[in-house]
Nucleic acid binder design. Structure first.
Lengths: 154, 154
DNA sequence: CTGTTAGTTCAAAATTTTAAGAACCAAATT
DNA sequence: AATTTGGTTCTTAAAATTTTGAACTAACAG
């Protein structure tokens, strides 16, 4: 495949980004490779070789990525290999899931408010505001996607 | 302080939430404790005892939490202790920072687009859309806060 | 029916992260 | 001046995560 230094560095940075989001290093790098690779879908061995990782690491990470969403594979008749690729058209779901993770802190905050003293009214008010905004954000997020969609048809 | 079982469990769940967001376990639990505790600000030793953690773990985690934003401390004249507390009024910044982390993936995506073949137009179009929406989201987030602010004065 | 391809699975090694303990320090107290 | 308080810092130990390597399997090929 022969990736230049710039691309290799970019793969690592994309990997690190995903690591920070909780993914294991190898899985992050696989995503990086898939973003950067010219070929639209890569085989198990192309991935393994390009990243110099073991078969087991490749297998485990690919299955994780398929399981959790960002990757899928396609096959071709008369070819036993799987061709793995990013589900890029899926970015709406991926992004929504990510933002929902943040928004869901409100569930915990609501439980906190349930069991707090009412002696600390300023504190409680702030938490209440936060919960309230998270509720609002959850409702508005789909509208925002609509709004963007419309703004771009024109 | 004597927290009941429900509160202890809630502290752990808040801890785990923050661990998933990349914080170390002890720091996450300290946040949990601060959300749940009746006292509005806690001393070093109250935190240490309530969570049964070492002085070094307490010190390191508190300094990290102060460094990264969510915690501050106050002092009182004639009292050498620090009283640590959540910066709850800061939730806007904290939330914005978190969402910005996600949005900033667009920086990497733009670099990806810079160095990709133009042979994979569907793929590239999807990435372009994603970048475009992330740009849009970054612009709209402050507006969303304004809109919420106004919706609640009424 | 033997070998090869395209992986999977599992135990163990390597690495990283986390927390503890002990030594330390500066300010206040006795 | 010695002790206590309220921490900090550094080294090491423990725990968790990540990755490897080796053995395995199922499908197909010769």
């Amino acid at each position: 495949m022969t990736l230049d230094e710039q691309k290799k560095a970019l793969i690592e940075r994309i990997g690190i980004f995903h690591e920070k989001m909780g993914l294991q290093p190898v899985a992050g790098r696989i995503l990086g490779l898939m973003y950067v690779a010219d070929r639209p879908a890569l085989t198990f061995d192309e991935i393994r070789e390009e990243l110099s990782i073991s078969k087991s690491a490749t297998s485990t990470a690919l299955n994780l990525l398929i399981e959790t969403g960002p990757v899928e594979y396609i096959t071709f008749p008369g070819d036993r290999k799987r061709y793995f690729r990013l589900k890029t058209s899926n970015w709406r779901d991926a992004l929504t899931k990510r933002i929902d993770n943040i928004i869901n802190f409100k569930v915990l905050l609501k439980e906190v408010l349930e069991c707090r003293t009412d002696k600390t009214s300023e504190f409680n008010t702030c938490l209440g505001e936060f919960v309230d905004f998270l509720d609002f954000l959850q409702e508005e997020l789909p509208n925002l996607l609509d709004k963007w969609e419309k703004s771009r048809v024109k």
